[in-house]
Nucleic acid binder design. Structure first.
Lengths: 167, 167
DNA sequence: TGAGTGGGTTCAATCAATGAACTAACGAGC
DNA sequence: GCTCGTTAGTTCATTGATTGAACCCACTCA
């Protein structure tokens, strides 16, 4: 009767959520990106229990999203830094943040702004098509079966549904 | 001792997670987008308890991400459809899915492919800068304080850290 | 009248999160 | 040598969330 894990599902969103879908995990990753990288800083910033933070960090390190790196010796102390895979999560999380700015904004406007060092300006993240560069909208996206598809838990009905337009 | 809600945090990522961060919720939204829109279909596809699905759908409808729409009368039956705000979540979720394809791929390759009806080709979602159109990378993004920022829970340390580079 | 369908609710058992208290290694100062 | 302060955790009881099974109800069709 353990909580259902998503890792076995034949769906990349489920497999992403298996890595970062736990309560607090995306906020921990955000803090690591923002430079809040030490255990006690994370506890103070987020206000979560030390207990849970330790467990989440262990899991993130084990899955290769975070590295535990010493920032001083004598006494030995560690900071938690994003790995390459962890940094690759930033753009999706930024896109989610932008959704929050638009559809769940806190009083007073966006709490954080982001500047792109490439062009030097404040920006909004936009998700575009890799082929034509156009901004994506739900109505213009069609799902089709991929090579790794299967009718496992999480795609039982979806697999049937997609098979019809397999082409 | 209730589970910490993220809604009061002065951080748009936290406020997004307050809406869709619950266990199962992003997968429910994915299924609605893929056309799995009825209660029993969702139960069969995902394998979650009817109990929990009912609670999640109620919450999504209450928050305006999903609409409950009759698809037949006699007997009256409802389908759950994405609202405009719910559809706006698709691009961020697609970006997260693409991360899963790269960094947590299931055996056999991507389970789903997506086609952009704008250009007619299969694509990968890319998160770009709204100003220059360049693909975003963590190293080229700098966070700065916004108008709605504050040192509440979730941004205690972050707010201090950002104040130094306020200008 | 009886079975079937779709869409839920109720309930007990177990897992996960919370918050407080505790541990431990080390250095600094007296 | 001894105590105090830092940093980074661990342990534990309490409460909340998830699970899976069983049940309910309105409605239709044979």
């Amino acid at each position: 009767m353990q909580r259902t894990r998503f890792s076995a599902m034949r769906c990349s969103l489920a497999r992403s959520l298996d890595r970062i879908g736990d309560w607090w995990t995306p906020l921990i990753l955000r803090d690591l990106f923002l430079g809040v990288t030490r255990f006690d800083e994370l506890v103070e910033d987020l206000g979560l229990s030390r207990n849970l933070l330790a467990r989440r960090l262990r899991s993130l390190v084990a899955r290769g999203l975070v590295r535990k790196v010493p920032y001083q010796r004598r006494p030995l102390r560690h900071a938690y830094l994003l790995s390459a895979a962890g940094e690759a999560l930033l753009p999706p999380l930024l896109a989610l943040t932008a959704w929050g700015d638009r559809h769940a904004a806190p009083p007073g406007g966006p709490p954080l702004r982001f500047r792109h060092l490439g062009c030097g300006r404040d920006f909004v993240p936009v998700v575009v098509c890799s082929c034509c560069g156009e901004a994506l909208e739900a109505a213009a996206v069609e799902a089709r079966p991929g090579p790794g598809g299967a009718a496992a838990r999480g795609t039982r009905v979806v697999a049937r549904r997609l098979a019809t337009k397999a082409r």
